[in-house]
Design a protein around this nucleic acid. Structure first.
Lengths: 229, 229
DNA sequence: CACATGCTTCGATTAGGATCGAAGTATGAA
DNA sequence: TTCATACTTCGATCCTAATCGAAGCATGTG
């Protein structure tokens, strides 16, 4: 009657403070080494190693060997969905002060979430896309899809939809922003948009941080591109 | 300065097997007494009592006193969202390991998920609503909203939208179905629809089970009401 | 008023696991 | 080859918390 690994085991994996710190550090989407994660979690290297192997056994982490480094990252969107849900719950109960602090105005304004844009601007983009009828619900992976008009818009913006649709990853996903309590666009399109903004010089990622800097011209262009009301 | 929103604390609460059993038992939406939950979790009464007060302190459970009984229920949709995300993750991991054939066909077809309909039929309903342009994305709570046409459809079906919109709970939400790996409709509307199906005699819930039985006429009516293609 | 039922609190026991340092292994650099 | 870096494994310690039974409290019923 039981299906798969237990919920309790999974939750217990996330339930240790050191492991939770590691996982939230990995929410940035960057792959980190064992040493970095040990520091992030505030534990010794041997302890971190033990935690990392447990997280891997539980299927929460993926490992990539590169030279003498071992890079760890979240194993997939399912994992970040759980973490996001937990963050949402924690935020709702007022227990939350995010690690890096959502008080930081720069973080509130624009930051990276996993691999896509989050914050005020991301919510605005989501609203604009919705308002213009570019997004529709679907039962398939991700729960969202581009309408024909939406596809045209993305193509115009030089987003390569063909290669995105080939990827196993869902193209459109709504991601709940725990500082805003509103949704923004995640999934392949979300990542592609951020990437494109960076290519155009509109956005620049601060080193070793989740903060995204938007240039003055970038901001103007984005507001034009994603009008509201 | 304590950065302790602790998603770790929350996850640890769910991470104990006894507590996880209690929470999943409460996913049915029914309120249960301490004794029932103790039996459900397979622990003694005193142990259960301890767990329940911890869950309450953590804000995961709500309590309603009624005579000499104390009824416990999940404190809100945030909590069930976390549990659903964990179930999804667990199902995904289990799927990779043991491809143990199809589950109980009755469960695949139609079952209750928290308080709304899940399974084949629920996915079809979601698809039909989408296809007819009744659902649209939004950045606010739940990520989905009814379009004007969708609201008209629901009113026609005698769903009381006014009272639903007053509730704190998001009206529309996509819920990922772990057997189908597709989305179906959750939130206030999802619950209201199932309730309406039951009132009309189209659906009947099997006692102490998640299985929903659809009557022959109910099935016919539902297929008419939610056409595809 | 008793008396039963439902649940909580207390105290003691026990098991699991988080932690660290030291020693061992693998991989790249010199 | 030799050394250094990055990480894992091992062994020992320590501490949290899960558990149960018994006693205490609360709220109903007779």
């Amino acid at each position: 009657m039981k299906e798969g690994p237990d919920i309790a085991q999974l939750a217990a994996l996330i339930g240790d403070p050191a492991r939770a710190n590691m996982l939230t550090a990995l929410m940035s989407g960057k792959a980190l080494t064992a040493s970095e994660l040990a520091q992030e979690a505030g534990v010794g290297l041997s302890t971190a190693s033990s935690h990392l192997s447990k997280l891997q056994d539980g299927g929460l982490l993926a490992q990539a060997k590169q030279g003498r480094h071992r890079y760890f990252s979240l194993s997939g969107p399912d994992v970040s969905a759980v973490l996001e849900a937990l963050m949402g719950l924690a935020a709702n109960q007022g227990h939350l002060r995010t690690r890096t602090g959502p008080k930081d105005p720069a973080l509130r304004a624009a930051r990276v979430c996993y691999d896509h844009l989050a914050g005020d601007l991301a919510v605005r983009i989501f609203d604009s896309l919705t308002e213009r009828g570019f997004l529709t619900a679907q039962s398939g992976p991700g729960g969202l899809a581009l309408t024909a008009a939406g596809k045209a818009f993305m193509s115009e913006f030089e987003i390569d939809l063909a290669s995105l649709s080939k990827a196993r990853r869902p193209m459109c996903r709504a991601c709940l922003d725990w500082s805003e309590r509103r949704n923004h666009l995640a999934g392949g399109i979300g990542a592609a948009l951020l990437s494109r903004f960076q290519d155009l010089g509109w956005a620049r990622r601060e080193k070793d941080s989740r903060i995204i800097h938007i240039s003055p011209t970038g901001r103007q262009k984005l507001l034009e591109l994603f009008p509201l009301g």
